[in-house]
Computed example of a mutant assay.
Amino acid sequence: MSNYRDIAWQGLWKNNPGLVQLLGLCPLLAVTATLTNAIGLGLATLVVLVGSNILVSLVRDYVPKEIRIPVFVMIIAALVTCVQLLINAYAYGLYLSLGIFLPLIVTNCVIIGRAEAFASRNTVSKAAFDGLMMGLGFTLVLMMLGACREILGQGTLFDGANLLLGEWAADLTIHFWQVDTNFLLAMLPPGAFIAMGFLIAAKNIIDDKIAAHRPAPEPEQAVTRVRITKVS
């Protein structure tokens, strides 16, 4: 259980792919103009991450080391194609909104990195749990960034939720204030880059406070060694 707890801690906080590893920044900065887009891309990435970790762990003993990366990329590409077709069929509006960044999940360094660094060296259960935690960590960063940008940029939250959940979700939109024109800095990728910097700074401040309140380790007791000389 302690091993799984450490995997969860690594994925959600200590080694978060968005805030610490800084992987997958291209879709993270470009798509998170609204919370709906962030949730959609995050869930798609999570599904692909869990599925690829499971499949890579299953075939790890049968793939030669020389061709493991191309094989991993083929597995990821197949899963991304399935997810893309499902979103196209059941959430076409979200499919159009995510655009090219949906198929670009294939090149997301988070997925390839976990397949190579973890799934190819661990059991199926650990690989699946690692994919779930890393995917959740990445999705949470997407959601925080999308919520901040949407509130600052257009004064709403869950705008376009019907694209993800259906027509009934159109009433979920929350209006904080009415704006005549959107705040473009928050809606464009430069604003996302600035907001990402604030999120990373907030995480570093929290880590510093946790480290400051952590009790200092006790000094090791000196060990006296006695050398015995044999006298003939």
Rank of each mutant, 00 (worst) to 15 (best):
Q178E: 15
N122M: 09
F158W: 14
F138Q: 11
C148K: 02
Q84A: 09
T181V: 11
G137W: 08
A169T: 11
I100G: 05
E150N: 05
V110W: 04
L163N: 11
T123Y: 00
T181P: 00
N122I: 08
V179D: 01
A161R: 11
L98P: 08
V106M: 09
P103W: 07
A117T: 13
L152K: 06
K126C: 00
L157C: 09
T123H: 04
M133F: 15
Y90F: 14
I76H: 07
A147F: 08
A169S: 09
F176I: 07
G137Q: 10
L132W: 09
Q84W: 13
C109D: 09
F129M: 11
H175Q: 13
L102C: 07
Q84N: 14
L86W: 13
M144F: 15
L140P: 01
V106H: 01
R149K: 10
L85I: 06
V110Q: 07
R121Y: 13
G153W: 11
R121T: 13
G160Y: 06
D130M: 10
I151C: 03
M134E: 14
A117C: 05
Q178M: 07
D180T: 12
L172T: 02
N162P: 02
T173N: 10
G153E: 12
A170Q: 13
L142T: 07
Q84M: 08
A127K: 00
A91W: 02
M144L: 15
G155R: 12
L132T: 14
I151Q: 03
G113P: 07
A170M: 10
N122Y: 10
G146A: 07
S97P: 04
E150V: 05
G155H: 08
G146Q: 01
G131K: 05
V124I: 15
N108H: 01
L132I: 15
F138T: 15
A127D: 12
L145C: 02
A170K: 14
W168P: 00
I105H: 06
G135Q: 05
E167W: 00
I100P: 02
T156C: 10
Y90H: 09
I151D: 01
H175D: 14
Q154T: 06
V80G: 01
Q178V: 14
H175F: 11
F183C: 05
I105Y: 10
Y95L: 01
I112N: 10
L140G: 09
M143A: 13
D130W: 06
T173Y: 07
V106E: 12
A147T: 08
W177Y: 14
I151P: 02
L85G: 00
E116G: 02
A78D: 05
F158T: 06
R121N: 14
F176W: 13
N162A: 14
C148L: 15
W168H: 13
N182G: 05
V80N: 06
T156S: 04
S125P: 03
A128Q: 03
A89W: 08
R114P: 01
F138L: 13
E167T: 03
H175Y: 14
N88D: 04
E150F: 08
A127M: 09
I100M: 13
I100D: 03
F129A: 06
A119W: 04
L96M: 08
I111G: 03
R121D: 14
D130I: 00
Y90L: 04
T156E: 08
G131S: 10
W177K: 12
V80R: 03
Q178D: 15
G135N: 06
V124P: 07
L96I: 13
I76G: 05
G131I: 00
R114M: 01
Y95Q: 02
L163G: 01
